[in-house]
Design a protein around this nucleic acid. Structure first.
Length: 557
RNA sequence: GCACUCGUAGCUUAACGGAUAAAGCAGCAGCCUUCGAAGCUGUUGAUAGGGGUUCGAUUCCCUUCGAGUGCACCA
């Protein structure tokens, strides 16, 4: 009963023809609800016309699916399935009763590690970290809904030469300062980058690596301050907490033995004073494991972390939600992992495009041109508040603040998730704050409207679903069937835009429904209740889908 | 130079190798004595150029042009 219509159709076609079919959406409702291209495959294999193959298959298939669908053979060879209204009503009844509709157990017993957000210590999160956090959080939600055991891993950037810069900056300009804030650390980092020679930062980092007590103490202090700031940001952003906060520094003690072992086994070799892992057979540039001054690198630490994850968590999959720019790094990491037989887990770089400024240029920390995430959130919430005040003056101060937060943060997240992750996102306030059309606020608004109708009805009876016969009602019932597929596809493609689109289309059909059908005025009580059942089921599906995307719903906005 | 990611309507974006390329914004034309107009309905408008593979190509391959991002001691 949990199987989607697509799976059922696939199974039937498999037993009827022995072929693995693609079940496709139809371009137009007049062509049915689902279609399959199976006839083209058979036609090619058996050298006959697609229409003939389709007709032959139809003869066997028709009776097998008769309980829920009828079939039409299109002149060009497609087989089109029309779901029967009784079947749709029956499914609506089942879905309405299934609080967990959309979830599955396909991932039961499997662990997935999702690494995301991963900000740098000593620098506040900026708009660039937003995508990793939003996408990663949603992907983790999706995998949980599919029954996987998910480990949300924040791989903090708490090690590296950048840290030396902050320390060097502190020693130069911040000595004795008692109340250090994140902004101070950023200032030292930026200023050190501009005014101090690179060697200064490298020197301080080397001292830190060698265990210098003063630098060690500073490192711990900066870490503490940063983590507190980060947690506040996550709270406002409304993301689920992390299971593991384990950064690069945690692997520092193992790096020496790892590199030495690799060298001894002949897997890594010295070149120009540095230790490299040759990747010529993968057509990749060599991976650098150790600098000529003996210090280790990002790749070395990632390798140690990968080994840790495989040994201690036995994941089926590790998703690295990290920007496009690091594509080469991950190709190298994955290639090395293969060479070292680090097997057992699927390694996926879930890459995403950059966040660009309105001028279309990259937003970079080094030029000090960074937009702090906190500032972005504050601004969007305050702008949302202005709109809420205008659209719904009845809301009191406290409610209004809560709505503004949900709408502002929702807009920020939806604006990101509705796009394919590969696209670069232009950070355009106007587009972000456009609360109409295909936007987070539209979905939240639609949900609130549905919730409102349901609340006013004051009854929870199911009614007679057989009375749902309007085309728009049929359409809504069909759309509800697509939810599990939309969720499942997110996990397959590691992209969330499909689910965002699905929810938008569901909301649009729901809007159309309540604008054209007066639900509460209906004199036929049984039909009224049936429509309320439909409305509640759609509302709940919207709510669950938005929750998977990390977006809050409210009964009144 | 090499590698990767791209190029779709005026703008921002969709499309698991499938049928007449789908939306939002902007524009135009309608809809508020009735469940919330942050809404609904209708409408104008596009696959960078050229080859190829395929029954079928926005999707795969080659090529030209254009954009972005990487490419040994940052992360």
């Amino acid at each position: 009963m949990n199987a989607s219509i697509k799976e059922i159709l696939k199974d039937e076609i498999r037993s009827a023809s022995g072929h693995e079919a693609d079940i496709l959406p139809t371009p137009d409702a007049t062509l049915g609800d689902y279609s399959t291209n199976i006839a083209f495959l058979i036609a090619k294999e058996q050298k006959k016309k697609p229409v003939d193959a389709a007709t032959e298959l139809n003869a066997v298939l028709e009776s097998r699916v008769a309980s829920f669908a009828s079939i039409q053979v299109a002149p060009n060879g497609f087989l089109n399935f029309f779901l029967k209204p009784e079947f749709l009503r029956q499914r609506l009844g089942e879905i309405a009763a299934d609080e967990k509709y959309g979830t599955s157990t396909q991932g039961a017993g499997k662990t997935v590690i999702v690494e995301y957000s991963s900000p740098n210590i000593a620098k506040p999160m900026h708009i660039g970290h937003l995508r990793s956090t939003i996408i990663g959080d949603a992907l983790a939600n999706i995998h949980e809904a599919l029954g996987y055991h998910v480990i949300r891993w924040n791989y903090i950037g708490d090690w590296g030469t950048q840290f030396g810069k902050v320390i060097a900056g502190y020693k130069k300009w911040g000595k004795g300062k008692s109340d250090i804030a994140m902004s101070d650390m950023l200032e030292w980092y930026v200023r050190a980058g501009k005014e101090l020679p690179d060697e200064e930062g490298q020197k301080e980092f080397k001292k830190l690596e060698d265990g210098d007590p003063e630098n060690r103490e500073l490192w711990e202090k900066f870490n503490r301050i940063s983590l507190e700031g980060l947690k506040e940001t996550y709270q406002l952003l409304g993301t689920t907490g992390f299971d593991v906060y384990k950064g690069e520094a945690a692997y520092e003690p193992q790096l020496k033995t790892i590199t030495e072992e690799l060298e001894k086994e002949g897997k890594a070799k010295e070149s120009e004073g540095a230790l490299i892992f040759d990747l010529e057979k993968y057509h990749l540039p060599p991976g650098l494991l150790r600098k000529s001054d003996g210090a280790t690198l990002y790749l070395t630490r990632d390798l140690a972390s990968l080994r840790d994850r495989l040994q201690n968590y036995a994941p089926a999959e590790i998703l690295y939600v990290v920007a496009n720019q690091q594509a080469l790094h991950f190709e190298q990491l994955f290639a090395i992992a293969r060479e070292l037989h680090f097997t057992g887990a699927g390694l996926v770089h879930v890459k995403f495009g950059m966040v660009l400024g309105e001028d279309g240029k990259k937003l970079a920390t080094r030029e000090g041109k960074v937009v702090p995430l906190q500032e972005v959130m504050d601004k969007i919430i305050s702008l949302a508040e202005t709109i809420v005040k205008e659209k719904n003056p009845d809301l009191s101060g406290e409610d209004r603040a809560r709505v503004a937060r949900a709408v502002g943060i929702g807009a920020l997240k939806y604006n990101d998730l509705k796009q394919h992750p590969y696209s670069d996102i232009v950070f355009d306030w106007d587009a972000m704050l456009d609360l109409s059309g295909n936007s987070g606020a539209y979905l939240q608004y639609t949900y609130a409207r549905l919730a409102n109708i349901s609340a006013k009805a004051g009854t929870m009876e199911t009614g007679d679903l057989a009375l749902l016969s309007e085309p728009i009602e049929q359409k809504l019932m069909k759309q509800l069937l697509g939810f599990p597929d939309a969720v499942g596809r997110c996990a397959q493609t590691h992209a969330l835009n499909g689910l965002a689109l699905y929810l938008y289309e569901l909301a649009a059909a729901a809007s159309n429904f309540y604008e054209t059908v007066r639900v509460l005025d209906d004199e036929n009580g049984s039909r009224k209740n049936a429509r309320l059942t439909l409305i509640r089921t759609v509302a709940r599906t919207l709510q669950m889908g938005l929750k998977l995307l990390g977006i809050e719903t409210l009964d009144r906005i």
